[in-house]
Amino acid sequence: MTVTPGWYMALSAVLFVIGLSGILLRRNALVMFMSVELMLNAVNLTFVAAGRELLSIDGQVSVFFVMVVAAAEVVVGLAIIVAVFRRRKTASVDELAELRG
């Protein structure tokens, strides 16, 4: 029994959905953030697996760029969380509902 790329794809789908559930169900901004990172990682895994199947290095280059963007995102996102926390003394996103219609 060989491991086909499909296996990796299915695994990343599962990881992606778990990350999605973290965003939908958790209130802690930090955990939601981690869930985003998890989803990014899941997608990265599909890139690498597909690149292997298609004999292309572009998948790995994509992973590289996604990581750079994710790093930038983490920097700014965590800074925002810290700034919000300094003002509101909470990391719960449900407290931040000022944009209610």
């Binding site: 939908l24 209130r27 996103v93 931040l96 509902a97 944009l99 209610r100 219609g101």
Partner: peptide, 18 residues
């Protein structure tokens, strides 16, 4: 009429995205 949809909760928006 559409106002109630905008609850202001981030997770509601996320549910919308999903």
């Amino acid at each position: 009429w559409l106002r109630p949809i905008q609850t202001g909760f981030v997770r509601t928006s996320a549910a919308g995205v999903v």
